[in-house]
Design a protein around this nucleic acid. Structure first.
Lengths: 219, 219, 219, 219
DNA sequence: GATGAATGAGGATTCATTCAT
DNA sequence: GATGAATGAATCCTCATTCAT
C-alpha cells in the first residue's frame, strides 16, 4: 500500500534528522511521488507521524497485555514484558526511536492521546514491578528509579540495534532479560522458563533495508 | 553574562521542542532581546548549540578522566564513572538531554568534532568494562550489550530527573551505582568505599529555575 | 512562458537599480506573483541572473562566429562583428547592459563560466584586429588600446539606445560601422559591401515595452 | 585625514562589488575601524558615495572648463578635453568607475544634483562637437551618436587601465586623442600642438596601491 | 490518483543606523 | 573619538498546505 511506503520513508527520515527537520518535499522525493500526492494518502505531516506512533504504541500495549496474561508471577511477567519490548524495539528500531523521541512534536490533541497510550504502557511495568517488590520476588531499593532505569535501558535498544547486525534478535532479548533480572535482584529466567511468546511483529512503518547505521551499530 | 542567558534559554527550548523546531525569534523572545542581538553574542543558531554541547561533553570527559585516575580497580572506576555521570546528568538534565539528542542537528564539521568527543567519552566506559570482565571483577555475558544498556540507563537520568524533585542528587547517584553493580555482577559499592568525588558542576548552559517538568518528573 | 516574464521583469529592475539592490519580493511584485512562486520557476535570484547573462553571451558568441565565417578579410569581419554586436545591443539594450555590468555579482562557479564566455567573445575581436593590423588592412598605433576602446564604445550602445527612440537599429549599426572603420584606419565599408547579416535576435529576457529611459535616451 | 581613508576603502569596495553589495561593517573592517565610527566621519553610507562622486565630477567639470578656455578652435578643444578626461580616468580609475556606475544608487536629492553635474560636463563635449561639425573642422554623419560613442570610449578607460600597468598615462592620453581625431574625421593633433595641460590630479578618494586588477588589466 | 502552480507565514541571517558609555 | 550593544526592517529562501487541472 502507498501509505506504508510513505510511513517507511518517513520513519527513516524522522529517525535520521528528526521530524521538525524533515521537509514534506524531501519525504515525497524519498517515496518517489510529488509532495502534493502525499496529502492524498497521508493527510498531513503530523498525521504521518501520529499514524506511525499510534500503531507502534498500540502494538506495544497489545503485546504487553499478552505478555502479562499467561502467568500471574511478577518475575515471569517482567521477563516476558522485557522480552516482548526488546523484540519489538529490535525488529522495528527506527519506528521505536521515532515513537520515543518525537512525542514532543505533536500538537495538543494527538499529543495527549499518545502520551496517554505511553503512560498506559509504562504503568503496566510499574504495576508489575510494584507487585514484584511487595511480594518479595524483586529486591529493590527504589521502585521508581528502577522502573525508569529499566525502561530507558530497554528503549535504548532502538538507538543502537540494527536487524542486519552481529546479534540476532533472540540473543538481544535473552541478554536483556538477564540484565533486567539482575537489576531487580531475582534469579535469571531462562527462555524456556518464561514460556512461549509470539514472534515480534514487524510494523508497517518500519523500513526494511538500507538502515542508516547508528554510530554504535553492531559491526 | 549575556551569552549564558542565551544558552540557558536555548537549552530550555531545545530540550522542550527540539533544536530544529525552535525559532531564533522565539529564542530571542525568551531572553528578552531582539533576534538580531542574538547574533551579536552567539554568532549563529548552530553556534549556540555547539557551544552548549561542547562544554557539556568536555566536562563529562574531564570528570571521567578524574574519576578513573584515583584507583586502577575496574569496579571502583566504574562506580566512580557512574556516580560522576549521573551527577552531571542530574544537576544539568536539560543540557545533558540536548547534548545527547541533538548531535544529529549539526552540520559536518561540528558534527564530526562532537561525535569524536562523545566517542572518546564512551570508550572510557568500554575500556573499564572490558578490563573488569577480563580480570574477573565483573561477570558479563556480552560486553557490548552491557555497555550500551548501562550507558542508555545512565543517560536516561536526564530525561526524568529534575533538581527540584523528590530525590536529591546524591540519592540518585547511590541508586545508580547500586543498579550498575547489579548489572555487571559485582557486589555493591558503598559511597564511602568509592572514595571522594568532586561535587557535580553546574554548567553555564543549564537553566536554573522553572523546569518544564518531564512527563515522568518526580511528583 | 512564466520564466520569460520573470527574466524580463528582472532585466528591467537589474538594469535600473542593479542586481544587488533589487529584492526578490520586488521582483515578484513586478511580475505579479508571490515571491515564493519565483522559486518555483527560477530556482534562485542568482539563477535568474545567470540565465539572462548566459543566453545573452551565448547569442553574442554564436553571432560572432557567424559574422566571421563569411569572409576571411579582417575588414569585412570587423565590420560584420560590429554590425552584429551593435544590433544585439540595440535590440536588447537592457539585457546587454545587465550582462555587461553584473558579472561581478556572481559567485565563483557561475562567475568563472561566464567570464570564460565573455573572454571567448572578446578574443574573436582581438584576433581579427591583430590580423587586420598585421596584413596592413588596419593602421593602428596600439592594438590593445584600440580593441578596448572599440569594445567599450560598442557596448556603450546598451547604455543609451532604446528601440523606441529616434533612430532605428539599422541606422545605429551603419553609424557604428563607420565609426569603427575610422578608428582602425580603413576606408568605410557600406552596408552592401559587408554582405547580408541575419537580423538581430530578440532575447527572451528583453522586456518589450515601457523602457525606463536612460538619461541619454533618444529624445 | 580619516575621511579620505574611508573614501579610498569605499572606492575600492564599491568598484569591486558595487555600492549595494558592500556592507557598512565590511567597509569599517577595510579601514580598520568599528562600523559605528564611520558615522562619526562620514555621516552615512550614501554620504560616503556622494562625497566621492561629487569631488570627481567637480574635478572633471573644472578640468573641462580649463581645457576649453585656452583656444576657441573646436579641434584643439576636443583634443584637450579628451586628454584631460582620459588623464583623470587613468589616474583615478576606481573613483571614475564608481562615479560612472553608481549614480543609480542615489536617492532623489543627491541623485538630481549629481545627474546635473554630469549633464553639465557632457554638454561641454556636446557643444564643442556641435561647433566643430558646424564649422567644418569635424566631419560627422551623426552628432549625437558620435558624442555618445566618444564618451563611452573615454569613460571605458576606467574599466581597464591601472596606473601600475604597461602603459604610462601620457601614452594612453596620446592614443585616445589620436582615436578621437579619427572618430571626428580631423587630422591628428600632436601633444605639442594641443598646448600645455596641467597634470591630472589624484583625487582624495582614489586608493593608492593594490589595485584589484580588472580582467582586461594591462599585463 | 496525481501534480504543477501558487501562497502566506515563517525560516535564519544581515542590514544600516543609533546611542549610551 | 571610539565602540559594543541594540534593533526594526529587510534580506534570500523554504515551509506546509491547498487547489485547479
Amino acid at each position: 500500500m502507498r501509505l506504508e511506503e510513505i510511513q517507511q520513508a518517513a520513519v527513516r527520515l524522522f529517525a535520521q534528522k528528526g521530524y521538525a527537520a524533515t521537509g514534506i518535499r524531501e519525504l515525497g522525493r524519498a517515496v518517489g511521488i510529488n509532495s502534493a500526492t502525499l496529502y492524498h494518502y497521508a493527510g498531513s505531516k503530523e498525521e504521518v507521524l501520529t499514524g506511525i506512533m499510534r500503531s507502534c504504541l498500540e502494538q506495544l500495549l497489545r503485546s504487553a497485555l499478552d505478555a502479562t496474561s499467561t502467568s500471574a508471577d511478577p518475575g515471569m511477567q517482567l521477563a516476558r514484558l522485557v522480552r516482548t519490548h526488546v523484540g519489538l524495539c529490535a525488529l522495528n528500531p527506527l519506528t521505536a526511536k521515532v515513537t520515543d523521541q518525537e512525542i514532543r512534536a505533536l500538537r495538543s490533541h494527538d499529543h495527549e492521546a499518545l502520551i496517554g497510550l505511553r503512560d498506559d504502557y509504562e504503568s503496566i511495568f510499574a504495576e508489575v514491578i510494584e507487585r514484584g517488590a511487595r511480594t518479595g520476588v524483586f529486591h529493590l531499593t527504589d521502585l521508581r528509579i528502577t522502573r525508569l532505569a529499566l525502561l530507558e535501558m530497554c528503549n535504548g535498544v532502538a538507538n543502537w540495534y540494527r536487524p542486519d547486525g552481529r546479534l540476532d534478535i533472540t540473543e538481544v532479548q535473552d541478554q536483556f532479560v538477564e540484565l533486567v533480572c539482575r537489576l531487580v535482584g531475582m534469579p535469571p529466567v531462562s527462555r524456556e522458563e518464561s514460556g512461549e511468546l509470539p514472534a515480534p511483529i514487524q510494523l508497517a512503518s518500519e523500513p526494511i533495508t538500507d538502515y542508516p547505521h547508528g554510530t554504535e551499530a553492531a559491526e
